[in-house]
Design a protein around this nucleic acid. Structure first.
Length: 746
DNA sequence: TCAGCTCACACTTTTGAATAGC
DNA sequence: AGCTATTCAAAAGTGTGAGCTG
């Protein structure tokens, strides 16, 4: 369990509490977001600790931030899966997600740089089992696994870059290997999860302090499995995934073809048997056995026998389609039989293919595009998923206000419909009218982004993630940024005085030495390594523009060319922040009430002096949704149906708390893995646990950006793992620190 | 006994290198 | 020599099914 004690840096200053907000473009909702992991602790805390969102003193000083929107291009495909109950295979080596997350983002400042992240959080505390044709919660979830974040290979890239193309996270892999060293996202099997996408404004590569937006698409939630449980899902996967094309009706690896191959093998074995057994009498009897099973058994039993030279002897199974059947007497028959068998398959295949021309082909095309196209054209025999219903069994978990109302899944016969209905409409009700009908609007749009921090559940880590900030501290106010993301805050790159430092990796240094260019064009991404230049944990406040939440610095000490340099992420996902944190006084802020409006992300600890600074203010006017304010427990299902509300320009505020995934989650061992090449170098096992001497790095513009537009190139490099301080690690005297030595680093 | 997991398998797509042609 | 198109092999991504484990 991650605790503030272990990660002092996790403790949030008063200002941090305001980092997380639900934001509505039209009617900005100003809500603190708390990570699921914090829900538990939050639940235990008195509601009073959750100060109401401060009234926006400075409405929309940054219009563009309010305009940030994200669409799920392949939402229709996702909905098809969700209607059945999406299952995601997880393997030890890691498995890609299918469907993949294909997104379109808009509203970004074309000239600003952004980092896109993907993380997956548990939807509830339940473990599921596929029973009676549906998923049902059968017990409590296992201990939460280390949180890992997948950073889009293109990160950081300009808003123009992100907006000019479809953003795909299909390279992210899921694994159930808790000891995974590849940087894959670790999940438990038979648990429900919800992917989240975060857009972090990066003033420069070194600093993540700009606007933060989080997006949740309810239809993308899934249950992890090691083997598909629902045949419908299997069918959908096969029909939708190009790599599974072989398993389609017309595929060479289809059931039919596999059976045919098996029969041929059997035939071969039988031939061997024939050779072995030359008894004419026996062969006659054998020929009369239509059962493949019998022949198989016999063949297997006799396969080991030494072959006999007499080919004339032996039986021929009816299905012996082996072209080279050794039956001189009836070579033609055998051949015909074989051809007939093959032709049957072929004819069927062709027929299927012909039929598929309109269906399968379209499906294939769609499938092929599914990864690249927004709208999957897949049309399956499966009943169209009810717009609002999900086949996911409702978990018998305490979901104070869940937008997932139990809906009659396709498996109406299921005696135990435990599928929490996924009310897309409700969640999508917030969809912006500007979005295409096919596009799915994220249910959650947070103005500020903070990574989940470990819940102070256990005694060792009961430290509050949130600042002890009292309402008076007005934690919900974002500290106005004085510096635009573009502005090169050289000063900000000054060596961090904070204890937490991350030494730059050699690769990083190399990159740094390279021409910063700042060109986000893919062509520039020759290097898979994306360097996050060392950033000084200096007070970002001065540099941060108003209305911008104070970005937490993430000081990490990493070896750089033998010389450790300071490397700080002003605002980094909590997991990363856990790497090393300056002394942060633990605050009771962690004790947050389990209000439905809790932020999806726990406020990350922010070591820098921002605490003394005014809280970042989120355009209250734009961030606070009246409906939310009125009823924190408002359920998503109460939200207007997207279809009906599509015309509405305003996004109904969505309570994260209402979303199952944001419900209290079991304690977990916080662990952050940045799936980005640039982070790899930093993961050297040689990383010093102590804070290296701070190094001064040039401003962001001067850093060469190695954008990984080519996923392959970027992926060729092992993901870097940034581990949080070990659970049992002891807090650094000066506060949090990166204890890389306690954990295996790859 | 059984649910869940691991692994090998066959198939497919993707990718990059090698080659040929202009 | 440089560029483009084609071919080929390797790598990686799929679901399946047998076998293993607790």
């Amino acid at each position: 369990m991650l605790s503030v004690e272990m990660f002092p840096g996790l403790a949030l200053g008063p200002q941090r509490i305001g980092d997380c907000f639900y934001r509505d473009r039209e009617v900005p909702a100003h809500r603190p977001l708390f990570p699921p992991t914090c829900d538990v602790s939050a639940a235990a805390l008195p509601p009073r600790l959750l100060a109401p969102p401060p009234v926006p003193s400075e409405p929309s000083s940054k219009p563009q931030k309010d305009e940030v929107k994200m669409e799920l291009e392949n939402s229709s495909l996702w909905k098809q899966f969700s209607s059945v109950g999406t299952e995601m295979i997880i393997t030890k080596k890691g498995r890609r997600m299918f469907p993949g997350l294909r997104l379109k983002v808009s509203g970004l400042n074309p000239s600003l740089r952004y980092i896109l992240l993907l993380d997956i959080v548990p939807l509830d505390n339940s473990r599921y089992r596929f029973q009676g044709g549906g998923w049902q919660a059968v017990g409590s979830a296992e201990a939460r696994l280390p949180d890992r974040v997948f950073i889009h290979p293109d990160s950081p890239a300009t808003g123009a870059h992100w907006q000019s193309r479809t953003i795909s996270f299909h390279y992210a892999k899921l694994t159930n290997n808790t000891l995974d060293t590849q940087g894959h996202i670790i999940l438990h099997s038979l648990h429900r999860y919800q992917p989240r996408v975060h857009v972090i404004e990066a003033r420069d590569v070194l600093r993540w302090g700009g606007g933060q937006h989080s997006f949740v698409f309810p239809e993308t939630q899934f249950i992890t499995v090691t083997a598909y449980q629902n045949n419908k899902i299997t069918e959908l996967k096969i029909n939708s995934n190009p790599f599974a094309k072989g398993f389609r009706e017309d595929g060479m690896n289809s059931k039919k073809q596999r059976d045919a191959r098996q029969k041929r093998k059997i035939a071969v074995l039988n031939e061997t048997l024939d050779i072995v057994n030359c008894d004419p009498c026996d062969s006659t009897e054998l020929l009369q056995q239509p059962s493949d099973t019998n022949t198989d058994l016999q063949a297997l039993a006799l396969a080991s026998l030494p072959p006999l030279p007499d080919p004339s002897c032996g039986f021929r199974p009816d299905e012996a389609s082996y072209p080279d059947a050794l039956v001189p007497e009836q070579p033609l028959d055998l051949g015909q039989a074989f051809m007939a068998s093959q032709m049957t398959d072929i004819s069927i295949t062709m027929a299927n293919g012909m039929q598929d021309t309109a269906g399968s082909e379209v499906a294939n095309n769609m499938i092929e595009r599914s990864d690249s196209m927004a709208e999957p054209a897949f049309t399956s025999s499966l009943p169209a998923p009810p717009p609002n219903s999900s086949s996911f069994p409702s978990a018998p978990l305490p979901q104070p206000s869940s937008s997932f109302s139990s809906l009659p899944s396709s498996n109406t016969s299921d005696p135990q419909p435990s599928i929490p209905p996924i009310d897309y409409p409700s969640l999508l009700s917030s969809s912006s009218p500007t979005l295409s009908a096919a596009a799915t609007t994220p249910s959650l749009q947070q103005t500020s982004f903070t990574f989940p921090t470990p819940p102070p559940s256990n005694t060792t880590s009961p430290q509050p993630l949130l600042p002890s900030s009292s309402p008076s501290s007005n934690p919900y106010h974002a500290v106005p940024e004085t510096i635009s993301p573009h502005a090169q805050t050289d000063a900000s790159f000054a060596a961090p005085s904070s204890t937490g430092q991350m030494s730059a990796h050699p690769l990083l240094n190399q990159t740094l030495q390279q021409e910063p260019g700042g060109d986000d064009s893919p062509s520039d991404q020759s290097s898979a390594a994306f360097i996050y230049p060392n950033v000084l944990p200096t007070n970002p406040d001065s540099a941060q523009p108003l209305n911008q939440p104070v970005a937490p610095t993430l000081p990490c000490s990493l070896p750089a060319h033998g010389a450790s340099t300071s490397f700080a992420f002003p605002s980094v996902p909590p997991p990363m922040q856990n790497l090393s944190f300056p002394n942060v006084s633990p605050s009771p802020a962690l004790h947050l009430p389990p209000q439905p409006l809790t932020a999806a992300f726990p406020p990350s600890s922010f070591p820098h002096p921002s605490s003394s600074l005014p809280h970042p203010s989120f355009q209250p006017s734009s961030c606070l949704a009246p409906s939310f304010q009125q009823s924190a427990g408002a359920h998503l299902q109460n939200l207007p149906n997207p279809s009906s509300s599509s015309s509405t320009s305003s996004y109904p505020p969505v309570e994260i708390g209402a979303v199952p995934q944001f419900n209290p989650a079991p304690p977990y061992r916080p662990e952050v893995v940045l799936h980005h090449p640039s982070l790899l170098p930093q993961l050297d096992s040689s990383l010093p646990s102590s804070t290296p001497p701070p190094a001064l790095y040039p401003a962001f513009p001067s850093y060469p950006l190695r954008l990984c537009q080519d996923p392959h190139s970027s992926l060729s490099i092992p993901f870097r793992h940034l581990y949080r301080q070990h659970q049992h690690g002891h807090p650094h005297p000066q506060g949090s620190y990166l204890d890389m030595s306690t954990r295996a680093v790859f």
